[in-house]
Amino acid sequence: MRKSVSSMKPNRRQIFTAGAAVAASTVAVSTVTATEASAADAGPYGSGVLGSWSTATRAISTAAQIQRTRETNGVYMFGDSISVQDGKALATRLLGRDGSQLAVHNWSSRPTSGAVDALQQWATTYGLPRRILMASGSNDIFDPPKFAAQVDRAMSIVGSTRTLYWVNIQVVRTSVTATMQLADQRNSSWLNMQLYDAQEKYPNLRIIRWAEWLWVKPYRLLNYLRDGVHPTVPLGQDARNELIVQALTQR
């Protein structure tokens, strides 16, 4: 694969400018024709309100797999529905690349607060390897102001001697109205800004720039995402997983 844009470190103005451009282009090609959502439906930040996720689909490694991953210094992964879809393929790719085991705690529709709760539980129960992967944030578009505190929580759990890798966020749902799509992109950029701010505080936080990889060539938003959120399979899945594996195995 060609060199990714994961080494780019955009400033805040670049993030907002790119986010606005992506939102405009995504809305322009959208086929959404539904009546605009009411203010109540849009929630306080324009993207709606997150529903209950406790019974949503999930993929969680067994205790034996978690212990094996910890003992061999593999990778713990905490993610949402994107990771439920892509986690098995990621594990295969990572194992083939450097022999690392992957233990996952992926849960659809889960916000980052729940992912960090799971990280804390595993840290207490099993201990942590030197690499932790957070692939969470897509469901935080509904309440962006709470995200930074969860990043801080995760960094506190991981400590300063391990590396936390975080896949950043790109959400513009094609199933919602144009107004909500604009809110989705604005909120995605807001969440990513909080990640970039956190990186200034935590030298051991590594951001995997999935959003920028999509933005840099706008056609990717259509070809690599099937609904504005989840990667297409295999094209988008392979691209996202490759960015992740490159970051995890970089020396």
Rank of each mutant, 00 (worst) to 15 (best):
S6G: 04
M8A: 15
K9Y: 13
N11D: 15
R12Y: 13
R13G: 10
Q14K: 11
F16G: 04
F16E: 13
T17W: 07
V22C: 12
V22D: 09
A24M: 10
S25D: 13
T26F: 10
T33F: 01
T35E: 12
S38M: 08
S38Y: 07
S38D: 12
A40R: 12
A40W: 08
D41L: 07
A42Y: 04
Y45V: 05
V49Q: 09
G51I: 02
S52I: 12
W53A: 14
W53T: 11
A56R: 15
A56H: 09
A56P: 09
A59K: 14
A59N: 13
I60H: 15
I60G: 04
S61Q: 10
T62P: 01
A64D: 15
Q65P: 01
R68A: 13
F78Q: 09
G79I: 11
D80C: 03
S81W: 09
S81K: 11
V84G: 01
D86K: 00
G87D: 02
A89S: 09
T92N: 05
R93S: 06
R93F: 00
D98A: 13
D98W: 04
G99T: 02
Q101M: 08
L102I: 10
A103E: 03
V104I: 10
N106M: 04
S108A: 15
S109Y: 08
S109R: 12
S109L: 11
S109W: 08
G114F: 05
A118D: 15
Q121P: 00
Q121G: 09
A123E: 13
A123L: 02
T124V: 08
Y126W: 12
G127S: 06
G127N: 08
R130C: 00
R131F: 01
R131Y: 00
I132W: 08
S136L: 01
S138F: 00
S138Q: 14
N139Q: 13
D140V: 01
I141H: 05
I141L: 11
D143I: 00
P144S: 11
P145R: 05
K146H: 08
K146C: 04
F147G: 04
F147H: 12
F147S: 02
Q150D: 15
D152K: 14
D152G: 03
R153I: 08
A154F: 03
I157L: 06
V158P: 11
S160N: 14
S160V: 10
T161I: 04
R162M: 04
T163V: 12
Y165Q: 08
R173V: 02
R173P: 08
S175W: 05
T177F: 03
T179W: 00
T179M: 02
Q181M: 15
A183V: 02
D184W: 09
Q185P: 05
W190H: 14
W190K: 11
W190V: 05
L191G: 07
A198G: 06
E200I: 02
Y202I: 05
P203Y: 08
N204V: 04
I208D: 03
I208S: 03
R209V: 00
E212Y: 08
L214Q: 05
W215S: 04
V216S: 14
V216G: 01
Y219V: 10
R220M: 06
L221I: 01
L221E: 13
L222V: 10
L222T: 13
V229M: 06
V233E: 02
V233C: 00
L235G: 01
Q237H: 01
Q237I: 01
Q237F: 01
I244K: 02
Q246Y: 00
Q250V: 09
R251T: 04
